[in-house]
């Protein structure tokens, strides 16, 4: 095996951290936006949803290229020195996860908004209580949204390569490592890394779902 087991775990742990941070960052903005879009009492918001759903198909390499140009020393934020760092990867992956989280959250909240509003307002609750109730009632679709966002972040390779540079011990993640090992013809290592990636995604999704389904 070309990649020692210890390094595989190191890469997996890094992937988990970067995708986790990206999901967190995307959720920080995506959840409130999704709840707001889904909970609005009047119809409309159609164009916002169209934009979100279309953005789910954002090509990762284009997002990566955008951040490359933004963070490059010749770019507007060049002074930050962030290109080829995990921070740059987190930002790009967060942009990719954001529409998933906002879109799926909005859809889930929207499906429940009318009923919850009628119930809460009917019992004399405030509009603020409508929102907090909606948030809890939509926990399952929200968990699904987080899982989808995490999945898109951890399984992505185009933006990760362009913004991270696949630097060993720094920005090498499971996907870029799979590309490298395949390029080197080390198919056993590539396969092993791929299996770890699958297992990790499955594990995180399972944890999220179990957490979301608990009473």
């Amino acid at each position: 095996m070309d990649v020692p087991l210890g390094e595989i775990w190191e890469i997996a742990w890094r992937s988990l951290r970067i995708a986790g941070a990206a999901t967190f960052l995307a959720a920080l903005f995506g959840l409130p936006l999704g709840v707001w879009l889904g909970a609005r009492p009047r119809r409309g918001g159609g164009s916002a949803r169209v934009v979100l759903y279309a953005a789910m198909g954002l090509p990762p390499v284009v997002v990566g290229l955008f951040f490359y140009l933004l963070l490059s020393r010749s770019g507007p934020l060049g002074k930050s020195g962030l290109l080829f760092t995990q921070t740059a990867m987190v930002m790009a992956e967060a942009v990719l996860a954001f529409p998933m989280i906002a879109g799926f959250t909005a859809a889930g909240v929207r499906a429940r908004a009318a009923n919850v509003r009628r119930l809460v307002r009917g019992l004399g609750g405030s509009e603020k209580q409508v929102l907090t109730t909606l948030l809890w009632e939509s926990r399952r679709p929200i968990v699904a949204a987080l899982a989808a966002g995490f999945g898109s972040a951890i399984s992505e390779v185009g933006a990760a390569t362009i913004t991270g540079g696949d630097i060993r011990h720094h920005t090498r993640v499971l996907t870029t490592a799979v590309v490298l090992e395949t390029r080197k013809g080390e198919l056993r290592s590539a396969l092993m890394l791929g299996l770890v990636l699958l297992g990790l995604t499955l594990l995180v999704t399972a944890v999220l779902v179990v957490w979301g389904e608990r009473e």
Partner: peptide, 11 residues
């Protein structure tokens, strides 16, 4: 209080 005809229950 207003009670809806759908007898809405929460999840």
């Amino acid at each position: 209080v207003y009670l809806d005809q759908d007898n809405i229950v929460l999840e």
